[in-house]
Simulated assay, not measured.
Amino acid sequence: MFKSFFLNKRWFLWSILGSIIILYVTWYKVQIDVEVNEWFGEFYNLIQKALSKPNAVTFDEFLAGCIDFFNIVSIYIIIAVVLEFFVRHYVFRWRTAMNDYYMSHWHRIRHVEGAAQRIQEDTMRFARIVEGLGVSFMRSVMTLVAFLPILWTLSENVTELPWLGQVDRSLVYMAIISAIVGTVLLAIVGIKLPGLEFKNQKVEAAYRKELVFGEDHMSRAQPETVSELFTNVRKNYFNLYKHYLYFDIAKWSYIQYTVIVPYIALGPTIVSGAITLGVLQQILRAFNKVEDSFQFLVHSWSTIVELMSIYKRLRAFEQQIDMIDSEPEEVVE
């Protein structure tokens, strides 16, 4: 899964240099996000000034603030589009590397259940998910590096917390605690999902294989056999849905309820009028960025579950290859 792409000289430009390019551009996008955060502070202060006194701000000044935002996000859009185009090619090259490796050992692994589907579909999904999760993780780290000092500085404006009183750098600690609670909660609630996803793919592969045989052989894919296989598919899906039900309850409850947390924390500061609207927007946005960075596992858990099931299926290939490599070569006719 990895050595066929990252340790193969043929794919050096795409695997190593391509990864460096993706990480660098991701870092640049984070820096643009920091610029947007600064713009929010200046623009909302301008709005507060305009609303506090008629004609205190001219339309040209207001329009200039809007144009600044347009200039910043225009660069972001161009970079995002080019990066997405590059990433699609990057993922397909990774799939190609895995495909070539597995097909070179096809005579050894073709007996593995769902072999055709694993090579045709799972290689693409694996490359896409790993790349997506990897970039998301690095973006979370980069965002944390960029916004944590900002939130640390802005926390000086928070006078006190409800019921707790004065706590230095309180918003930083709240973001960390909130993310840890959510991550631990969903990890416990979703602990059974990877195994269920893996089992789900096994019954799907068995059902698909029988249908494929039925295309060429009249004796295969008979109603009784197909009905039994599809019953297994249905049972596993219903079981999976049941476990996802309580997982989704926990996930969405956590994500939605924590939206109001920074507002409650800033309550005494807001009602005392200790900060401007622009500073408030900067604090809220910086808090959300830091919290989201710490919540990487919270937002990615469903994708990680899917990746783990794909990894298990592809790993079965590699175990077969490793096992046979340790024995005398024997080509299966």
Rank of each mutant, 00 (worst) to 15 (best):
A127T: 04
T159A: 10
A127N: 03
P149S: 12
V112L: 07
I129E: 08
L144G: 15
S170I: 04
R108N: 08
I109S: 02
A115I: 02
E121W: 05
F137K: 05
M124W: 05
S140H: 01
H105V: 05
G114Y: 10
V135L: 12
S170R: 14
H111L: 07
D100K: 03
D168S: 13
E131N: 13
A116R: 00
P149M: 09
D122Q: 09
H111G: 00
R108W: 11
E131S: 13
N157D: 11
E160H: 13
I176H: 08
D122P: 09
W163L: 15
E160M: 10
M174S: 14
V130W: 10
R108K: 07
P162F: 14
M124R: 07
R128A: 14
G134T: 08
Q117W: 06
M142A: 12
G114H: 05
M142G: 08
A116L: 04
G132L: 09
I129T: 06
T143Y: 02
E160L: 11
S104I: 04
N157E: 15
Q166T: 13
A175W: 02
W163N: 15
R128F: 02
R118M: 09
T123F: 00
R108H: 08
T143V: 07
S170D: 13
L161T: 11
M124Y: 08
S104N: 04
A115N: 02
V141I: 08
V135A: 12
L154K: 08
E131G: 01
I150Y: 10
R169A: 15
E131I: 09
M124P: 00
T143E: 07
A116C: 00
V135Y: 05
M138P: 02
V145Q: 05
R110L: 01
E131T: 14
M124F: 00
Q117T: 00
V167C: 14
N157Q: 15
L164W: 13
V145D: 10
E131D: 01
G134V: 06
M174A: 15
R110G: 01
T153V: 08
F137M: 13
Q117I: 01
E131A: 11
T143H: 04
I109E: 01
S140I: 07
Y102K: 00
W106C: 00
T159V: 14
A127G: 09
G134D: 05
M138T: 14
I176P: 03
S178D: 13
G114R: 03
I177F: 14
H107N: 10
V158Q: 12
R139Y: 04
M138K: 00
H107G: 00
L148K: 03
Q120E: 13
T159D: 14
R128I: 00
S104W: 03
L151A: 14
V112D: 03
W152L: 15
E156K: 15
Y102G: 00
D168E: 15
V167H: 06
L161D: 12
E160G: 07
S136K: 15
F137P: 02
G165F: 06
I119A: 02
T143F: 09
L133D: 06
R139V: 07
W152I: 04
R139E: 11
I129G: 06
R169E: 11
E156H: 10
E121Q: 05
V167Y: 06
H107R: 02
E160R: 08
V167N: 14
